[in-house]
C-alpha cells in the first residue's frame, strides 16, 4: 500500500500521543488484571491503536462512534478521561458507567462514544438506529460502527447492511480484521476472506485500509465518512490489523505461532508511526520519549484515581434499571436477600 504524506505536524503529534496513551493504558490494565484489581474479561487493543485512532480522527465530535467489547482505546480516543475508564475497569463509582458495565461495556455520552457491546454483532443494528435518528432529524451526523471479523458472520451483519442500504442510512461499518474470531483464524470462519466484499450483495461499497497505519486508516475512513455524510449511504471498510495480545487475558494463544506474532510485530503501528515521524523530522527522539513519559504519567494518575474511587454503595444496586417517572413509580422485586418485597428506589 502506498504511503500517504503525513498530515500537519500538530495532527501527527496528537495521533502519536493518543496511540501511545492507549498502548500504555492497555499494558497497565493488563498488569492490574494480573493483580486482580480488574475482574471479568479484559480484551486489550495492543496492536490495534492505529485502527482506533485513525478511525476516530475521521469523525467530527458530533458523530456517533460505537464499538465492541474491546473498546477502552476507542473511549479514550474519543476524549474520555483515562482515569474514569480505569475506574470502570476497577468497578468503582467514578467509572464511566459507575461500575455497572466493566471492560466490555464502556460508554461516554458526552463524547458520543456510544458503547462497547459485549455481544458479537449486537452493536450493528444499534449503529443503524443512530443513523436512522440522524436521518430522521435531518442532520448530517455520521455513525462509525467498529466490529470484528468474527461479527461479519452474524445474522445482524447481513440484516443491518441490508436495512442500512435500503433506507440510505449514513453509517460507516468498519470491520476490524485482526485475523481471528477469538481463536479461529479468518480462513477457518469466513468463506469470503476479502471482508470488504461482504457488503456487495446489498450494494454497500467496500474499502480496505491498512489498520497498522494510522495515516492510511484515517485517510480511507475519512473518504468513507464523506460518502456516508454527503451521499447518505452506508459504506463497509475493512481495517486489516493484528492484535499482539491474546483475545482476552485468558488466552493461551495456541492457535497462532510465535513466528507469526513476531512477523506482525515488525509492523507495530505505534513504533512504525513514531519512527516515521522522527525520520521525516516531525519530532525528535527525545520528544518521542517525552510523549511516552507523559503517557505513563497519565496512566499512573488514572490508576491512582481508580484506586481512590470507592466501590459503588450496595444501596445503589437498583438504581438506573428504570427511568422512574409519573407512570412508573417504583416496581416490585424480590431477590436473594429474602422474601421481602422491594419497591424500587423512589416512590415519591
Amino acid at each position: 500500500m502506498a504511503e500517504h504524506p503525513l498530515p500537519a505536524a500538530q495532527t501527527c503529534l496528537e495521533w502519536l500521543t493518543k496511540m501511545n496513551l492507549i498502548r500504555r493504558f492497555e499494558e497497565r490494565a493488563g498488569e492490574q488484571y494480573t493483580r486482580a484489581k480488574i475482574g471479568g474479561f479484559l480484551h486489550l487493543a495492543i496492536g490495534e491503536e492505529a485502527t482506533v485512532v485513525g478511525a476516530v480522527a475521521a469523525l467530527r465530535p458530533d458523530d456517533y462512534m460505537i464499538a465492541t467489547y474491546r473498546s477502552h482505546g476507542q473511549t479514550i480516543a474519543r476524549g474520555s478521561d483515562p482515569g474514569r475508564v480505569m475506574a470502570e475497569l476497577f468497578g468503582r463509582v467514578d467509572g464511566l458507567c459507575r461500575g455497572r458495565g466493566g471492560s466490555m461495556h464502556m460508554f461516554d455520552l458526552e463524547h458520543r462514544f456510544m458503547g462497547g457491546f459485549g455481544i458479537v454483532g449486537g452493536n450493528l443494528p444499534i449503529a443503524a438506529g443512530f443513523g436512522l435518528t440522524s436521518d430522521y432529524l435531518g442532520n448530517d451526523e455520521v455513525t462509525l460502527c467498529q466490529f470484528g471479523d468474527g461479527a461479519s458472520n452474524q445474522g445482524t451483519f447481513g440484516e443491518t447492511l441490508n436495512l442500512a442500504a435500503l433506507w440510505s442510512l449514513p453509517v460507516v461499518f468498519m470491520v476490524t480484521n485482526n485475523q481471528f474470531g477469538m481463536g479461529t483464524a479468518l480462513e477457518r470462519h469466513s468463506a469470503q476472506t476479502d471482508l470488504q466484499r461482504k457488503g456487495e450483495s446489498f450494494g454497500v461499497p467496500g474499502m480496505e485500509c491498512d489498520g497498522m497505519d494510522v495515516v492510511d486508516t484515517w485517510k480511507v475512513t475519512s473518504e468513507a465518512v464523506k460518502i456516508a455524510r454527503e451521499q447518505r449511504q452506508p459504506v463497509l471498510v475493512e481495517a486489516v490489523n493484528y492484535r499482539f495480545r491474546g483475545h482476552s487475558m485468558a488466552d493461551p494463544e495456541d492457535y497462532r505461532s510465535e513466528a507469526e506474532v513476531l512477523e506482525w510485530s515488525k509492523r507495530d503501528p505505534l513504533k512504525t508511526f513514531a519512527e516515521r515521524l522522527i525520520a521525516e523530522g516531525v519530532i525528535t527522539e527525545p520528544e518521542r520519549e517525552a510523549i511516552d513519559e507523559q503517557a505513563m504519567a497519565t496512566v499512573d494518575r488514572a490508576v491512582e484515581f481508580a484506586d481512590a474511587s470507592p466501590a459503588p454503595e450496595p444501596g445503589s444496586l437498583y438504581e438506573d434499571i428504570y427511568v422512574l417517572g409519573d407512570q412508573v413509580r417504583g416496581w416490585y422485586s424480590t431477590d436473594h436477600r429474602g422474601a421481602g418485597v422491594r419497591k424500587g428506589e423512589d416512590l415519591s
Binding site: Y64, M114, G122, L124, P125, I126, A127, A128, G129, F130, G131, L132, T133, S134, Y136, L137, G155, T156, E159, T160, N162, L163, L166
Partner: peptide, 20 residues
C-alpha cells in the same frame, strides 16, 4: 421493514438511545 426481527428491534434501540 424487511423480515429481520432482531435487527428491527436493534434499530429501535439505537434510535431510542438518540432521541426518537
Amino acid at each position: 421493514t424487511p423480515i429481520s426481527e432482531n435487527t428491527i428491534v436493534g434499530l429501535g434501540v439505537g434510535s431510542a438511545m438518540t432521541g426518537l
